[in-house]
């Protein structure tokens, strides 16, 4: 019942996304000039429009798109002539890996600090967390990315001076991070298995390459985590402090259970559903919402791909990214629902 319900909702949501996406992309321009230039004759343009099916009524075009979509055909880029599905298969893992590591970073700072802040409000770590959250929500992600690149890549090799009195030469230093030019610095990627370079390199047994891939991931992941982690910090803090104040927590102490047991068994368990929910939402959001950071780090992900598609009014590219992002959202929600269903007995009745 629960499952059937979910699948129906999923289908309706996706159909709505396709319809809205289709309408919007078709009404904002034409790929004809981008693919042919402006210095061509009317006849050639007309011929191209006919080839691309752009002269058909919009309803017919939509029907064609939808039937192709249902067969897994996302169309062809009007510019590069490469099937969109092929490009997506290459670019989605890049984004997914970046977003995954973003969440890893958030799970390292936002959630532990949130737990701590919930357990001990007003403590030093609570203040640190709140400070980081304030900072994270007030700076734009692309700006923070540029700042990191400036401080950690650009600046160190340019530090070069001598301290006068003691005559000590300072610098130049090597850059702390690789240049912001994608997922790997000029080496061949590992053989494709999962599409995550870190994982694929480990599978191939190439630790140097895995390290290299990880090193390229850190700055974009930290940038995105600092700007998308604050809600996670705050929700964790609220959930923990609410769970901590529940009567059943006091009751558990009164039976003689220890602090650790009560924290793990009662407080964290009861605080986890909203945190889990938000983590999934953050993941879904970043799949499309990390575009600017992808651009700053020249990350070859689907965000950059969508921007490229938009520049050229390449309908199928833009629409495919929108649909993929929606599918990921819906699937994530479904997984979170399943986990919560397994965890919370109240949902099972």
């Amino acid at each position: 019942m629960f499952l059937a319900n979910r699948v129906v909702v999923l289908a309706v949501v996706l159909l709505a996304v396709v319809m809205i996406g289709f309408t919007i992309t078709r009404s904002t321009g034409t790929p004809l000039y981008a693919s042919l230039g402006v210095a061509v004759s009317e006849a050639i343009i007309e011929q191209r429009a006919e080839e691309m099916g752009l002269n058909e009524p919009i309803v017919v075009q939509f029907w064609t798109y939808l039937t192709h979509l249902l067969q897994g055909d996302l169309g062809v880029s009007r510019i590069s002539r490469i099937p969109v599905a092929e490009d997506i298969a290459l670019k989605l893992p890049a984004t997914a890996e970046m977003v995954f590591f973003t969440l890893v970073v958030s799970f390292i700072w936002a959630i532990p600090l949130g737990v701590r802040a919930g357990l001990r409000p007003g403590g030093r770590l609570a203040k640190l967390g709140e400070g980081m959250a304030q900072f994270g929500v007030s700076v734009p992600a692309f700006w923070l990315g540029l700042l990191f690149i400036f401080l950690l890549y650009f600046l160190p090799p340019r530090i070069n001076f001598v301290i006068p009195v003691i005559d000590l030469a300072v610098g130049p230093f090597p850059p702390l991070f690789p240049p912001p030019l994608g997922r790997l610095g000029g080496v061949d990627p590992p053989a494709m298995v999962t599409g995550f370079y870190t994982v694929d390199a480990l599978i191939a047994g190439d630790f140097r390459l895995a390290w290299e891939a990880l090193w390229h991931l850190i700055l974009p992941a930290v940038t995105l985590s600092l700007t998308s982690g604050p809600p996670l910090f705050r929700v964790t803090r609220t959930a923990v402090s609410e769970a901590l104040a529940s009567p059943f927590v006091e009751a558990a102490y009164s039976y003689g259970l220890g602090r650790r047991t009560v924290l793990i068994r009662d407080v964290l368990r009861n605080a986890s559903p909203p945190v889990l929910n938000l983590a999934a939402m953050t993941f879904g959001y970043l799949i499309g919402g990390g575009v600017l950071v992808e651009v700053v780090f020249s990350w070859p992900g689907i965000g950059s791909y969508a921007v490229w598609g938009m520049d050229n009014s390449d309908y199928d590219v833009v629409l495919a990214v929108v649909i993929i992002a929606a599918v990921i959202y819906v699937i994530l929600y479904f997984i979170v629902d399943l986990i919560q269903f397994a965890m919370d007995p109240r949902l099972r009745d």
Partner: peptide, 24 residues
Amino acid sequence: QTYRGSEVAMIYQNPVTALDPMLS
């Protein structure tokens, strides 16, 4: 911890909220 539970224990006012909703 030993004192709580094995010397003195408590029964609460609201029986349902005194039980952890997530545990059998």
